[in-house]
Computed example of a mutant assay.
Amino acid sequence: MQVRSLFITATGTNIGKTHTTVQLIEAFAAKGLSVGVFKPIETGVSTLPHDASLLLKVCQKVNKNFKNLNPEDITAYTFPLPAAPFCADIHQEIVLEKIIKKYHELSQLCDILLVEGAGGLLVPVTKDFMMIDLAKKLKAKVLLVTPSRLGCINDTLLSMEALNSRNMGFEWCVNLFEDKESFSEVTQPFYDEVFPDWWSVEAGIQRFISTY
């Protein structure tokens, strides 16, 4: 059976990809699926990769195949500089084949592999290869996480346009965090009108995973 994969991306950095991925790990596991995690690239790493460490810790609670892995085992590259991978990779170390190989290795350990991207869709991995290209190369279904802050409609629509321009199927959700109190007035009316089936990380995860 071919392992299913889900690429979790966002409209930018600090939107809630890791928070969302944690919720997905727990939800898929509760459904009875063996779930794994992969953080291809993490920047801003001084010692241990923070996001990869958190994701692995949660994953190890529900998948015995990940019990003996270290955070470095679920990443392909880490860099000290908190920047886009291309900029953080000052020695030009990134080789795409290494990321693909790691993806296939981790896929052997689960029914569904959750892949958390770095930053947003058009964050450069190399000078001519973006995060959105990685999602497409992996042939993964995409989940776009969007913020709830003022201005998020523009960010959301631009990210959707990027995905649609590459003919990539995707789902999207809102992480209700920033400007949460004003969201229902300044943003939600548009979503309700144009995307009546939109959902939030807080309220829609179960409905989303029911499609798997």
Rank of each mutant, 00 (worst) to 15 (best):
L150E: 06
K64G: 10
Q108L: 10
D155L: 13
D111C: 09
V62N: 06
K136R: 13
K101R: 11
V142F: 02
M130W: 10
P80S: 10
K101D: 13
L96Q: 08
F86R: 14
V145F: 01
P71G: 10
F79L: 04
K67V: 08
K139Y: 09
A88P: 01
E116V: 02
P147T: 00
L69Y: 11
D89A: 03
V62K: 04
P147E: 00
L69I: 00
C87A: 13
L143W: 05
E72Q: 13
S107C: 14
A83V: 07
D155N: 13
T156S: 13
L144M: 06
Q92D: 14
V125A: 09
N63T: 10
K127P: 00
G151A: 04
D128P: 09
T75I: 11
D155T: 11
L143C: 03
L69N: 11
E93L: 15
L114Y: 00
L113W: 04
L122H: 03
I153W: 03
F86K: 15
P82T: 13
T75G: 06
I94M: 04
T75M: 02
E116C: 08
I94L: 09
L106P: 14
A84K: 07
D155A: 15
L121R: 06
E97D: 15
E116W: 03
K98N: 15
L122C: 06
A135M: 02
V142W: 01
D111W: 08
A76K: 06
E161H: 15
T146D: 09
N63R: 07
E116T: 05
D73N: 12
E72I: 12
K98S: 10
N63C: 06
L143A: 01
L113N: 08
G119T: 12
L150H: 07
Y77A: 02
Q92M: 09
C152A: 11
I90W: 01
K127D: 15
V123M: 05
E105K: 07
T156V: 04
L121N: 02
I90V: 14
I153H: 00
A118C: 05
N154I: 09
L134W: 03
A83Q: 10
H91K: 15
L158W: 01
F86P: 07
S159K: 06
E116G: 05
I74Q: 05
T78Q: 09
I132W: 04
V142I: 14
P71K: 10
I99W: 07
A84E: 04
L143N: 02
L114P: 00
S159F: 08
I132A: 08
L69M: 13
G117F: 09
G117S: 11
F129T: 07
D73E: 08
Q108E: 14
S159E: 09
V123Q: 03
Q92T: 11
V142G: 00
L158R: 07
E161C: 11
M131L: 12
E161R: 13
P82R: 02
N63F: 06
N68R: 05
C87Y: 13
C110W: 08
P85C: 08
L113D: 04
T156K: 05
K64E: 11
P80E: 05
V125W: 08
L81N: 12
